[in-house]
Computed example of a mutant assay.
Amino acid sequence: MEEKYSISEFIKETQQEDKGQGLFELETPRMLEINLEKEIWAKMGSMVSYRGNIKFEREGVLEHGLGKMFKKAFTGEGSSLMKARGNGKLYLADQGKKISILNLENDSIYVNGNDLLAFEPSLQWDIKLMRKIAGIMSGGLFNVKIEGSGMVAITSHYEPLTLLVKNGMPVYTDPNATVAWSGDLQPEFVTDVSLKTFIGRGSGESVQMKFEGEGFVVVQPFEEVYYSEKS
């Protein structure tokens, strides 16, 4: 029994492993290992450890052009990025959330601005603000569209669930529980006054995202409140 709880046993069970999975590796379901050789974009504040020669730079105000700067100012600092450069092993995490790795191959995906953990510089990205909801929720709701080829890591509270969207069969989701969706879907926001007393939002309308067409949407079993509703 004493050996079971020894320091050496603890180290054996929890120590880092090289799994040979490439640039992005899931060291644990909630810890991302990046085998850095050049540079990577990561969520500000997500670094928990590194080894090697790695330097971190805050995202430059004009690094992505005036258009993105203005959109970022309008959305607030919700998803500040940092650039990690160098060679070594970098470990990222975000409040213990579960991490999923996606390898895009000329694909596009929208990710909730709060659920984007890291991505390769080879991918193109842009902030998409959903202004139609701004009149209902303070500041609106913003997402990041990522497209091209490369690795991207997203996070979710607990296990994510992917729902397929098919023509004639729309999918409705809670904005607070929506993590990501395929790049060819354009959700619209709908309200349902009759639901407001049933889901804890007694002052105001219930807001849902409606997805129509062909694609997928990823949700989490958690309502992540990162903006304030107007009273």
Score class of each variant (00 low, 15 high):
Lys166Glu: 15
Ala134Arg: 13
Gln16Lys: 10
Leu90Arg: 07
Phe119Asn: 01
Ile199Lys: 10
Leu164His: 07
Pro221Val: 09
Ser122Asn: 07
Gly213Cys: 08
Met31Lys: 14
Ala177His: 04
Lys71Leu: 13
Leu104Val: 05
Asn112Gln: 12
Asp184Ala: 10
Gly96Tyr: 11
Phe70His: 03
Pro160Ala: 06
Pro187Ala: 08
Ile154Tyr: 01
Ile154His: 03
Leu164Arg: 12
Met130Thr: 05
Ser100Cys: 00
Ser228Glu: 15
Ser206Tyr: 14
Gln21Tyr: 08
Asp126Asn: 15
Glu223Tyr: 10
Glu3Met: 11
Asn35Thr: 12
Glu25Gly: 00
Met130Val: 04
Gly78Phe: 07
Asn35Pro: 08
Ile101Met: 03
Ser80His: 05
Leu195Asn: 07
Tyr50Ala: 09
Phe216Arg: 09
Phe119Arg: 03
Asp107Lys: 07
Ser122Leu: 04
Ala73His: 06
Leu129Ile: 12
Glu13Gln: 15
Ile7Met: 13
Gly200Lys: 13
Gly96Cys: 13
Ile34Phe: 02
Met69Trp: 14
Arg201Phe: 08
Asn112Tyr: 04
Leu23Tyr: 01
Asn53Glu: 14
Arg30Leu: 04
Gly67Met: 12
Lys83Met: 11
Ser108Gly: 13
Lys19Gly: 01
Ile99Phe: 02
Gly60Met: 09
Leu36Glu: 03
Ser231Val: 09
Lys12Ser: 12
Lys68Tyr: 03
Glu39Trp: 01
Gly213Ser: 09
Thr197Arg: 15
Glu27Arg: 04
Glu223Val: 14
Val193Glu: 13
Thr155Pro: 06
Arg58Leu: 13
Asn114Ile: 10
Leu116Pro: 02
Leu23Asn: 00
Gly67Asp: 09
Glu159Tyr: 11
Val111Gly: 04
Phe211Ile: 07
Arg85Ile: 10
Pro221Arg: 08
Val61Asn: 06
Ile40Gly: 02
Ile99Gln: 03
Gly200Gln: 11
Tyr158Ala: 15
Phe56Pro: 01
Glu39Ser: 14
Gly168Tyr: 02
Leu161Met: 13
Val207Cys: 04
Trp125Lys: 06
Glu13Thr: 14
Val219Tyr: 01
Leu66Arg: 09
Tyr5Asp: 11
Ile40Ser: 01
Pro121Asp: 03
Leu116Gln: 03
Lys38Asp: 14
Glu214His: 10
Val190Ser: 04
Glu59Ile: 10
Pro221Leu: 08
Lys97Tyr: 10
Ser203His: 14
Gly76Gln: 02
Asp18Gly: 04
Asp184Val: 08
Thr28Leu: 13
Phe24Glu: 00
Glu159Arg: 12
Leu185Cys: 07
Val218Ile: 15
Thr191Asp: 05
Lys166Arg: 14
Ser6Lys: 07
Gln15Trp: 08
Leu81Tyr: 00
Glu37Asp: 12
His64Asp: 10
Ser49Thr: 06
Phe10Ile: 15
Ala153Val: 08
Gln21Gly: 00
Thr155Ser: 10
Val190Glu: 11
His157Phe: 13
Glu27Gln: 15
Asp18Arg: 09
Leu195Cys: 08
Ser108Phe: 00
Ser80Lys: 10
Lys89Arg: 15
Gln95Thr: 02
Gln208Tyr: 15
Ile11Thr: 09
Val190Trp: 00
Leu92Cys: 08
Ile7Gln: 11
Ile133Pro: 02
Ser194Tyr: 05
Pro187Gly: 07
Asn176Val: 06
Met209Pro: 05
Leu62Asp: 12
Ser108Gln: 11
